[in-house]
Design a binder for these strands. Structure first.
Length: 799
RNA sequence: GCGGGUGUGGCGAAAUUGGCAUACGCAUAAGAUUUAGGAUCUUACGCUGAGAGGCGUGCAGGUUCGACCCCUGUCACCCGCACCA
């Protein structure tokens, strides 16, 4: 047989679809397996081969699971709300709905041409009314439970996209979408109180099987720290509250620092004598971008507050208060106690401003730099003599609590989720602003709150959503009192719809709830979730948060959505750079499918290297995969009555074992290599039986299903190879009857010897000693030690 | 600065976790076949050496009968986070 991909790709894709072969049916008599890949954002440029790699991993696992008899749910959908589509609409004048529909059509056809075994009957599209109705519903539930609030604070703002962004969307001080520099702006926005779940999100990581660096990144992002809150009395009748992780250094506090935006400056304007200088400094800081504020400025800046001072609660000494931008309003209380002797930032600041530096921990040289290590406590009253940091902290906490000065506290780096976007293409936030009643949620029965059609998607110049211009949408009656009221015109961020899509897959058409209890009880949790590392501190955190919220309401059956999480590495362009339209190094899967076939593409993206590692695309390297499939097709001509040799039979069992195990470990490259070894050996031998070829194609079928179906059919087997039984291996038959030992003298390889597998140690040793190439190295020497590693090697230590 | 990772032929990469380094694939070379190109098949393919052998997993040491793997130091690159108190 010849591998004619143009004929067989289409042929089998049609047959699978006709037979509804990959449609999942809840069948409680069977063991379920829910494998999930991150649904794509349907962008205008279509998919590139990176998407194919991202889906191919669990595609292979899912196909293997079906063959192992599992009831598999392997769904796909589209995360279609978001800025790029809206920007395309602005540029081209085509409505986002139209843009989205076109893109989804394009993505669907690309995915189908690769032959993925998705359940196409369960496709979800986050922009469909029947879907976003439930996104809004969950939002209202959160509102009802106090997890939604409005606040006017400093927010991340992208001047180019004209939107407020969450912390997660502005990592590295850059806009996640356009990579522009983020600025800080004071604005009133909607927040989701994700910090309420910070501890649960952290603890939940204990019980799931995430890739170690996925877990670590989430832990770092949540950023839990334990320390203490301490109140410092002021020279007015008030106190300044700080957070510290080092309450043990309290005796070394010689000044305090507050963030430029700290409210205490406004509060005591009449007491402070240098308000002009402070205002000027604050204005200067506000001008600095995040980048300048955090990366460039090594030199500490600040201004002393005149007229306002604090008392160190434990030494009772009066200490000055400074304003400096190395303290952030967004973390802790926006104020710190400064211990220059034992904190390098405070040290730099104290040096520059000529403030006292008092050593309270021995071990360093504070005339040179801050000492941050451990040591004996000195100059520290009740703490003197303690040599252990933990003991010192325990003791001082006890002391602070007793005196009512402070108490133990916990802080997180994670911030609440800024949730509204001043844009059109997103879920409308179901909230009404009533002049009488204030903020009123839209009643559940009025959902979905539909996104109205508009002609102009350009955001307003003052950062208003395009929806603000649609009077028929804005003007409404208050659901509570009936008075004339106005709707919220901002929309939800891109991450809203993807925060619960895996739930909808279990019951995608349900009109009465986001998914039925029965469906979720059967399918959840997601057994295996694969996606990109870039989503670990965004989508993954957000969706775990939503899921845990729903769990607390007893609306979902599991506390964690995903039992296992892995991540694939990028496919780089052939130039070794990240694939991007602007670089022109993008590879379109359709081109590859046209020229070389879907199976070749599938095989190559998994063969090119470690699945978790980035690897550059290499056109000619792919030829090896094509050649392998050509040879696979041609195996049909070697089918003869007689079976293979015992050696080859052992190799078949070894191959079944290795492919079976390697797929589970996502070591697809070595699984494929093993099948190549087997096919090479079969060609050397010159023939095989029908049954043996049947084993081979079943092993290969998760990777290259089209050609395997074709061969399966040609062999006269009934049914589909895609759901045929996964081959079993016999452990006993994976062992060769003879073993080759390496023979070393003094650790150096001198020869090899083939012995019977059941030869005992002494037999092997004496055979090894007789090896021609070994004899000269043993002659005239005394063997003082014989090392014997079963099935591997022998080593003679001689003198 | 903190955290994580990587470093192996001309290239993509393997190595059962301390046991024959370079499996598998690409590229290259020679040969066979072919009118020719292509495709296919065979053989070779770490460096060095005529050979026996010697040397080889970023670099320098160490432990061990034996190290890509463990330890100490060091260099380079990649990815996160970043004045987090």
């Amino acid at each position: 047989m010849k591998y004619e991909h143009r004929l067989i790709d289409k042929k089998w894709q049609d047959k699978w679809e006709e037979a509804k072969l990959f449609e999942a049916k809840a069948d409680t008599s069977k063991k379920k397996f829910y494998s999930l890949v991150e649904f794509p954002y349907p962008s205008g440029s279509g998919m590139h081969v990176g998407h194919i790699k991202a889906y191919s991993g669990l595609e292979v696992v899912s196909r293997k699971r079906r063959m192992e008899g599992y009831n598999v749910l392997f769904p796909i959908g589209f995360d279609a709300y978001g800025l790029p589509t809206e920007n395309t609409a602005i540029k081209t004048g085509v409505h986002p709905r139209q843009v989205t529909d076109n893109n989804i059509k394009k993505f669907t056809s690309q995915l189908k041409r690769v032959g993925f075994s998705f359940d196409w009957s369960r496709v979800v599209d986050t922009t469909e009314e029947e879907y976003y109705k439930w996104t809004q519903w969950i939002f209202l539930k959160m509102y009802e439970n106090g997890l939604v609030f409005r606040d006017k604070t400093l927010v991340n703002y992208c001047p180019s996209c004209k939107v407020v962004l969450s912390n997660e969307d502005s990592q590295g001080g850059k806009c996640d979408i356009c990579h522009s520099e983020i600025v800080q702006k004071t604005k009133e926005v909607w927040y989701l109180r994700i910090t309420e779940y910070a501890d649960k999100l952290l603890q939940g990581l204990e019980g799931v099987d995430y890739l170690p660096n996925v877990r670590l990144q989430q832990e770092n992002w949540i950023g839990k720290s334990t320390g203490a809150f301490v109140n410092f009395k002021l020279n007015v009748d008030d106190s300044l509250r700080i957070y510290t992780t080092r309450p043990d250094t309290l005796y070394g506090v010689t000044f305090m620092v507050i963030a430029p935006e700290h409210p205490i400056i406004e509060k005591y304007r009449d007491v402070i004598t240098n308000t002009e200088a402070l205002d000027a400094y604050k204005a200067e800081c506000a001008k600095k971008s995040e980048f300048e504020r955090t990366q460039l400025v090594k030199e500490k800046t600040g201004v002393r507050i005149e007229g306002l001072s604090a008392i160190n609660p434990i030494t009772e000494k009066e200490i000055p208060i400074y304003v400096a931008d190395y303290v952030m309003m967004g973390y802790g209380t926006g104020a710190i106690m400064a211990v220059p002797a034992h904190d390098s930032r405070d040290y730099d600041f104290a040096k520059k401003f000529g403030i006292d530096i008092i050593e309270v921990i021995k071990g360093g040289d504070i005339s040179v730099e801050a000492y941050t290590g451990d040591g004996e406590m000195v100059n520290s009253g009740v703490l003197n003599g303690i040599t252990n940091k933990k003991d010192a902290i325990d003791k001082i906490l006890e002391f602070l609590t007793e005196k009512g000065i402070g108490e133990k506290g916990v802080q997180f780096k994670m911030k609440d989720w800024a949730f509204n976007r001043q844009r059109y293409w997103g879920e409308p936030i179901p909230i009404v602003h009533c002049p009488e009643c204030g903020i009123v949620p839209v009643p559940y029965e009025e959902l979905p709150l539909r996104l109205p059609p508009v002609d102009n998607f350009q955001p307003g110049s003052d950062g208003e959503s395009p929806l603000a211009k649609i009077e028929s949408f804005v003007n409404c009656k208050c659901p509570k009192c009936g008075a004339a009221a106005k709707r919220e015109t901002d929309t939800m961020p891109q991450w809203a719809g993807s925060s619960w899509y895996f739930l909808r897959y279990t019951d995608p058409k349900n009109p009465d709830c986001f998914a039925s209890k029965e469906a979720m009880n059967y399918w959840l949790p997601v057994d295996w979730y694969n996606g990109g590392m870039e989503h670990v501190t965004r989508h993954m955190i957000y969706s775990r948060f939503w899921h845990k919220f729903l769990y607390d309401l007893d609306l979902v059956p599991t506390s964690e959505p995903y039992a296992k999480r892995t991540a694939q590495g990028l496919i780089l362009g052939s130039d070794g750079e990240k694939m991007s339209k602007s670089r022109g190094n993008v590879v379109d899967p359709n081109t590859v499918v046209d020229e070389s076939g879907a199976d070749t593409l599938r095989l190559y993206v998994l063969f090119m290297g470690d699945y978790e590692q980035a690897a550059p695309w290499n056109e000619s390297s792919m030829k090896g995969c094509r050649r392998f499939l050509d040879r696979t097709a041609a195996l049909t001509e070697l089918v003869k009555g007689e079976g293979v040799t015992p050696e080859l039979e052992t190799l078949i069992h070894k191959t079944i074992k290795k492919v079976t195990e390697d797929i589970e470990a996502m070591k697809f490259n070595t699984a494929i290599a093993q099948m190549m070894i087997l096919i090479n050996a079969i060609y050397d031998h010159g023939s095989l039986t029908k049954d043996e070829l049947g084993i081979f194609v079943r092993l290969l079928s998760p990777f290259a299903p089209h050609i395997c179906e074709e061969i399966w059919e040609a062999l006269g087997n009934g049914g589909f190879c895609s759901v045929a039984e996964w081959p079993q291996y016999d452990e006993a038959k994976t062992v060769d009857s003879t073993v080759e030992y390496a023979v070393q003298v003094l650790g150096k390889l001198r020869g090899t010897v083939i012995v019977n597998a059941n030869d005992d140690k002494d037999t092997v040793l004496s055979k090894a000693k007789a090896v021609d190439k070994v004899v000269p190295f043993l002659e005239g020497k005394t063997i003082i030690k014989e090392i014997f590693v079963p099935n591997k090697l022998v080593n003679f230590v001689v003198k």
